Computed example of a mutant assay.
Amino acid sequence: MPSKPNQAFVLRAPNQAKLEPYEMPGDPGPDEVLCRTLAVGICGSDIHYWRDGKVGTFILGNEPFVLGHETAAEIVRCGKNVLHLKPGDRVAVEPTVSCGDCDYCLNDQYNLCPQITCHATPPIDGTLQHYFIHTAKYCFKVPEKLTNDECAMMEPLAVAVHACQRVNITKKSNILITGAGPIGLLILQVAKAYGANRVVITDINEERLNFAKELGADETILIQRENSEEKNVQIIRDRFNQIGSDIAFECSGVGVNFRLIIFASKPGGTCMFVGMGPSELQLPVAAAAFREIKIYGSLRYKGCFPIAIDLVNLQKMATHHFDFAETLKAFETAKSGQGIKVIINVDRQ
């Protein structure tokens, strides 16, 4: 049974969010579970909703809206059909729920389901609250060795796993990553776990590049803001023997980098767009077509949480911690770009 009243970090308009009492979820349905939130990581999308009131085409409505979707939780109550979980189990929460009946769902592409819903995507509330209800099959029990921090980071790690599974990483793969933020650093670790020969990562932040070296980057490139596109392409190609990368992941969301990885890829190479960039962008289509560059996109994940749970150690990634009462301060810290991953301990006031 819930041991305390519900409370949530509620966004009512851009830059207007605070902790306040919130309606307690009801009983879970037959295939659902009632969860108690333990920890939540702050994602870039949370920052955009808080600051701008929108992420891409998803726009904050007029109703109160709870942020947060990178979640570690404890099961409080199970619906009558739920057999794989029990009260007290600690779970990583895949925040999406698909319809299960459309062609995409029936063909193992449920992440493309047109009816899919996701925590902290309007109008669906997120998990920065003490209690929430979720579909049980998207809750994954985690081993005791995983900390709550790591459990909360299974969601962005699943993003990295899905992106890496979309391309063919082998022991011969020489990989470029643009952006040493959380997703770029996670893709670095997943690519290494999948046996990549060499991983080079770029950023404008030297501190993040130093951290990338600690996580296994073979080489880092500090990009200067004043550099021309031609100069950056040359700098990168110099690190790949003038041939170019086999696989390039764009993880920064910075518009110029979507162009950059096309020019920096070898003929026949692969570009994976992971970062959430501008809605419209001028890309060098002829340069990609004439060199048979393969361009892929990546949306969330499908079936990646069990793999993520067994894959890598993420303890170093959580650089800042805040109690639930300090949630606004946590968002301000994340917005400033400090550290790598900001974690809110919801079970601590």
Rank of each mutant, 00 (worst) to 15 (best):
A8E: 04
E20W: 14
Y22D: 02
D27G: 13
D27A: 15
D31L: 07
C35K: 00
R36F: 12
R36N: 15
L38Y: 04
G44V: 07
G44H: 09
F58E: 14
P64C: 02
I75T: 00
H84G: 08
L85D: 04
K86F: 05
V97F: 01
D101V: 15
C102M: 07
N107M: 11
C113L: 09
T121A: 13
P122D: 07
A136F: 00
K137N: 06
T147E: 06
D149Q: 14
V161A: 01
I177Q: 00
T178A: 04
R198C: 13
V199S: 02
T220N: 06
I223L: 14
E229P: 10
R237K: 15
C251V: 08
R259D: 12
F263M: 11
G269A: 06
M272R: 05
F273H: 14
M276G: 13
Q282I: 11
A286I: 09
E292R: 07
K294H: 11
Y296I: 10
L299K: 15
C304N: 11
C304V: 00
C304S: 12
A308W: 01
I309C: 00
L311S: 10
V312S: 08
M317T: 10
M317V: 12
T319P: 02
A325F: 12
K329F: 11
Q338W: 07
G339W: 00
I343D: 01
